[in-house]
């Protein structure tokens, strides 16, 4: 288990991480979300022991110490490998640095390359591989020593949809094998498919923290309806009759309605039926993307208010 307690890190004039606390349980996929500059990478570097927090503690297995490198796998956001060296040699090097014997590292690297359909490229220099395949090799270098805790910073960036699905499956397999995974990513639709717990950060602070249903409730309680209508009628009637509802045109005759929990649906639908020529009604759950964008927008709006 990893516990981050009131951690703070300042660089010159910027507070990169500000009183962040979180707990990652063994065997979880924990997603760390936030816009660029939110403090995710700084937090990850502190968790890995590459930086020390100015304040607060980071407990690995209950102890305030640097993590054991053999138990850590790391795929950094700023990543690269030795382009002119053979793929297998590079992987074995990283395996040995993580405490494996050369034989065990070779065996594990070959098994992973096989799994990634790269076994026939093992003796080619990395630079001869496509960007997606290089990304796979990067991923292998982070996990081939079967660490207890893997930190994957932007693992999906630069991948096509097929490889994104492949990586999703791999990360779930890692979790199923007992590995704890800390994931930082921008692809919300992917994260919400696998994350057990999510933290949204902005400007160094935690905005939301919990499971997906929990953070949905933290950010917005209520529901979302999409109405398909004919024509382009005015939505002014909503202002007078449904104060807890926000609406926007999605295009193609579709209107999206966010409805607060306290807003009764019956009068709203009756008013909508009276003012609109409704052809179709669809109820959509609030997505992680909605939560993310909405919570960041709210936080930014709050911070810019006088």
């Amino acid at each position: 288990m990893l516990r981050v307690e009131s951690v703070r890190k300042r660089f010159a004039t910027v507070v990169a991480v500000d009183a962040v606390s979180l707990t990652i349980e063994r065997g979880q996929i924990f997603a760390l979300l936030g816009p660029n500059g939110a403090g995710k990478t700084t937090l990850i570097r502190m968790i890995l022991g590459l930086m020390r927090p100015d304040e607060g503690r980071i407990l690995h297995g209950g102890e305030d110490r640097k993590p054991d490198p053999a138990q850590i796998g790391y795929l950094p956001e700023d990543r690269g490998l030795y382009q002119d060296i053979q793929v297998l040699k590079t992987l074995v090097y990283f395996g040995v640095l993580r405490g494996m014997t050369r034989a065990a590292a070779t065996k594990s690297a070959l098994a992973w390359l096989e799994r990634m359909s790269l076994a026939d490229r093992a003796h080619e220099p990395l630079k001869s591989l496509s960007k997606g395949n290089q990304q796979k090799v990067q991923f292998i270098s982070a996990v081939l020593h079967a660490p207890a805790f893997a930190v994957l910073d932007e693992p999906f960036s630069g991948l096509d949809p097929l490889n994104q699905d492949l990586f999703l499956g791999l990360i779930q397999d890692l979790r199923n094998s007992g590995m704890t995974v800390l994931l930082s990513a921008h692809q919300m639709q992917l994260v919400e498919r696998i994350a057990d717990r999510i933290v949204v950060m902005n400007r160094g602070r935690t905005l939301l923290n919990g499971t997906l249903p929990e953070i949905r409730r933290q950010w917005a309680t209520g529901s979302r309806l999409v109405l398909r209508v004919s024509g382009e009628p005015s939505l002014d009637f909503l202002a007078g009759q449904a104060p807890g509802v926000t609406a926007r045109w999605l295009g193609d005759g579709c209107i999206e309605l966010f409805i607060a929990a306290e807003q009764p649906l019956g009068p709203l639908l009756a008013a909508a039926g009276a003012h609109l020529d409704i052809r179709e009604i669809e109820s959509r759950p609030v997505t992680l993307h909605d939560v993310y964008v909405g919570s960041i927008a709210n936080a930014e709006g709050a911070e810019t208010l006088p």
Partner: peptide
């Protein structure tokens, strides 16, 4: 320049 440093210093 090839950004391999973080991966190494997280290991040793």
């Amino acid at each position: 320049q090839i950004r391999v440093t973080e991966q190494v210093v997280s290991a040793i």
